[in-house]
Amino acid sequence: MDALKSAGRALIRSPSLAKQSWGGGGRHRKLPENWTDTRETLLEGMLFSLKYLGMTLVEQPKGEELSAAAIKRIVATAKASGKKLQKVTLKVSPRGIILTDNLTNQLIENVSIYRISYCTADKMHDKVFAYIAQSQHNQSLECHAFLCTKRKMAQAVTLTVAQAFKVAFEFWQVSKEEKEKRDKASQEGGDVLGARQDCTPPLKSLVATGNLLDLEETAKAPLSTVSANTTNMDEVPRPQALSGSSVVWELDDGLDEAFSRLAQSRTNPQVLDTGLTAQDMHYAQCLSPVDWDKPDSSGTEQDDLFSF
């Protein structure tokens, strides 16, 4: 819950932080000083300027060897085509990944977070970031790969997607708890209302004896509580940590079903599988986004697919 609360507080303090972009060759504004600060901008989305290598189908939802083989196929196909790589912007948030063309600003792909089953910074092609997700059109699994400016960037994108998945799962947990509370309150309110109706004398007997209905007592009954809980029953509950912020979080049926399955089948359902080692994760978390744009010590960066 700490990640969720800190993310909400950060967004309320400075929503404009989320509009910064990394990996864009110096076009961005001043960047936060450390990885923790940038992680807090996830709610509205972190932007990464990358190059799209392509996509291939895979048979399993996750796995280092599986993704490595898929990336190898994608890279080989991209090299064989001889075409310049498409420059894209990857927007990562707890909602998922939005992929747009840098030149036309046209939407290429919009992947809900619950469809993503794996992401990684490839070991062999260490400047490549990739994720595996279920197609929104059918049940097939797709591996999408992107060329980053350097290994640090690939690791940073991988960690960002993993963190977005974690925050999304926490949102789901909060929403589920809130819905259970509202359902319980609604049920209790309905029981109270039913009890009051059972003990209320029939209207005919009131008229016969000349008694008047006590409207004041009726007004004191917990009807307002019942209506408050039943009027918006169809509205999706939102985490309290975000009250007053500009973010509107809505959970669709697909996300609810997917996270429910994860909660039942996995020990740590909030953790998205990645190909990063503990050492890689520690190294990337210690980086400032400013470091992502620094040239690798191995030599001059080449803006070309064939540089790796």
Rank of each mutant, 00 (worst) to 15 (best):
D2G: 04
D2Y: 11
A7H: 15
R9N: 10
R9W: 15
I12A: 13
S14H: 10
P15A: 00
L17H: 09
A18W: 09
K19Q: 12
Q20E: 15
S21C: 03
S21L: 12
G23F: 08
R27E: 07
K30M: 13
P32T: 03
E33Q: 14
T38M: 11
E44V: 10
G45H: 12
G45A: 15
G45W: 13
L47G: 09
L47W: 11
E59T: 10
Q60E: 06
Q60P: 15
P61W: 11
S67G: 15
R73P: 03
V75N: 08
A76L: 07
K79F: 11
G82V: 13
L90H: 13
V92T: 14
S93R: 11
S93P: 11
R95Q: 10
R95L: 14
N102T: 11
L107Y: 11
L107C: 13
I108T: 09
V111R: 14
S112T: 13
Y114S: 05
S117I: 14
C119H: 00
K123E: 10
K123N: 11
K127C: 08
V128Q: 10
V128C: 11
F129Y: 09
A130N: 05
A130G: 13
A133P: 05
Q134I: 15
Q139F: 08
L141H: 03
E142I: 12
C143I: 04
F146E: 05
L147G: 10
C148N: 03
C148L: 15
R151D: 05
Q155K: 11
L159E: 02
Q163L: 03
A164V: 01
A164P: 05
F165N: 01
A168Q: 05
V174C: 08
S175V: 06
K179D: 05
E180V: 12
E180R: 02
K184L: 12
Q187C: 07
E188F: 03
G190Y: 02
G190R: 05
D191Q: 09
D191M: 04
L193D: 10
G194A: 15
G194V: 13
A195P: 10
A195V: 07
R196L: 08
R196H: 12
L203E: 06
L203H: 02
L203K: 03
L206W: 12
G210S: 11
L213H: 15
T218P: 05
L223K: 07
S224W: 00
S224V: 08
A228R: 03
T230F: 02
T230K: 09
M233R: 09
P239F: 01
L242E: 01
S245E: 07
S246V: 00
D253Q: 04
G254V: 10
D256G: 07
S260K: 00
R261M: 12
Q264D: 04
T267Y: 05
P269E: 02
Q270L: 03
Q270C: 00
D273I: 05
A278E: 07
M281Y: 07
P289Y: 05
D291C: 07
D293M: 06
K294H: 04
K294P: 00
K294A: 06
D296F: 03
S298L: 01
G299W: 10
E301K: 00
F306D: 02
F306K: 00
